[in-house]
Amino acid sequence: MPPARSWRTYPQGYMLEAARCKKCGKTFFPPRLVCNKCQGREFERFNMQRTGKVVTHTVIRTPSDEFSGEAPFAVGVIEMDDGPRLTSQIVDVSFDEVKIGMPVKLEFRRLSSEGDAGIINYGHKAVPART
């Protein structure tokens, strides 16, 4: 990925910046310019809490080349406690432990790197939430 492509979304990738429609209250991750529920165009931005739960999940066993060294890995749709849903790997977990409804928290991880010489892309991955 060219550096600019990840750099321009660091607020979302690093800080989980989301937006709440001022008209109808719907939350979006990443932030958008137009609300897809009410067409509102004014938003309040906020950084999401890093907690949520699994809505659905799978285990990727045949990945694209970019992820070939990491397979198999679990991926899920996560519903954040702040509302928006996002896709994330679920790591540091045994696959049979991943269930719909499982509470998770997001940890800062490497998402990918452009070979051995390119930039490293950072973001978040889900891990089981324990206390």
Partner: peptide, 26 residues
């Protein structure tokens, strides 16, 4: 798929439909 917010996490097309399958089965 959404390259920026889905594929960047390694999810593939079989993976996306598998997640629909898991939800449908549940």
């Amino acid at each position: 798929a959404d390259m920026k917010w889905e594929a960047v996490h390694g999810v593939t097309f079989p993976g996306l439909y598998a997640m629909m399958a898991v939800a449908h089965m549940a």
